Amino acid sequence: MTETAPKTAKDLFALLDSLNIPHKTKEHAPVFTVAESASLRDEIPGGHTKNLFVKDKKDQFFVVTVEEHATVDLKTIHKVIGASSRVSFGSPEKMLEYLGVVPGSVTVFGAINDTGGNVTFVLDEELMREEIINGHPLSNDATTSISSNDLIRFMEATGHTPLVLKVTG
């Protein structure tokens, strides 16, 4: 089996265009935390995301996407998302292998790289009430905005049916 390079932001935008999904991307200095990205809020409207790459003891992987200030109880989230046990953070190696991103760049758009269906994507229902959802386009030096309905369409086009669940307290 040959290793293929992860898809890039350019590939992501081409897929969105092919699906007729309107999107807008703003480039900015790399941000690694919610606190660092707070300065961009005035420039980029909509719901901003925090993404957790977690796994259970059976090596089922999940990306949990919530509103940036939401609180996620990692001790109990496994009951909500269907994990077999309490979850822990997935390794940077698996993150790169499955999502094509490095720590600090985890994003719902990583679904484009999960061609093997190794990751279950969970979208918080609170976040999905936002008209516009913002996420990193596979790197943390830009933010891409699309509608919440189009986010679901994108996920389905990558072969993922995201779970929309109440995962925040």
Rank of each mutant, 00 (worst) to 15 (best):
M1G: 15
T2W: 11
T2G: 11
T2L: 13
T2S: 14
E3S: 13
E3N: 13
E3M: 13
T4P: 06
P6L: 06
T8A: 07
K10N: 14
D11C: 01
D11Q: 09
L12T: 04
F13K: 15
F13N: 11
F13W: 12
A14S: 15
L16H: 00
L16K: 00
L19N: 04
P22E: 13
T25W: 09
K26C: 09
K26D: 14
K26Q: 14
E27L: 12
E27I: 11
H28I: 10
A29Y: 11
A29L: 12
P30S: 03
P30K: 08
P30T: 01
V31Q: 10
F32H: 14
T33D: 06
T33R: 03
V34W: 04
V34L: 09
S37K: 05
A38W: 12
A38Y: 13
S39T: 14
S39F: 08
S39L: 12
L40Y: 11
D42Q: 13
P45N: 03
G46R: 08
G46V: 05
G47H: 06
H48L: 03
H48R: 05
F53R: 00
V54K: 03
K55P: 03
Q60D: 05
Q60A: 03
V63W: 06
V63S: 02
V64I: 15
T65Y: 06
T65F: 10
H69Y: 13
A70C: 08
V72R: 03
K75R: 14
T76L: 11
T76N: 09
K79D: 05
V80D: 00
I81H: 01
I81E: 05
G82D: 07
G82T: 01
S85D: 01
R86E: 00
V87Y: 01
V87D: 04
S91H: 06
S91I: 08
E93D: 13
E93G: 04
K94Y: 07
G100E: 12
P103V: 09
P103D: 10
P103K: 03
V106T: 10
V108T: 13
F109V: 07
F109T: 03
A111D: 02
A111K: 04
D114L: 10
T115M: 11
G116M: 02
G117Q: 09
G117M: 06
V119D: 02
T120C: 06
T120L: 07
T120P: 06
F121D: 01
F121T: 01
V122C: 01
V122H: 00
L123E: 04
L123H: 02
D124C: 09
D124W: 00
E125Q: 15
E125C: 12
E126V: 14
E126D: 13
E126W: 10
M128H: 06
R129D: 12
E130G: 08
E130N: 14
E130A: 14
I133R: 00
G135N: 10
G135Y: 05
H136V: 10
L138N: 07
L138C: 08
S139H: 15
N140V: 04
D141C: 09
D141N: 15
T144Q: 00
S145Q: 10
S147E: 05
L151S: 03
L151R: 07
I152Y: 11
R153P: 08
E156P: 06
A157L: 00
A157G: 02
T158C: 15
H160Q: 06
T161H: 15
P162Q: 03
P162E: 01
K166E: 12
V167L: 08
V167E: 05
T168G: 09
G169V: 14
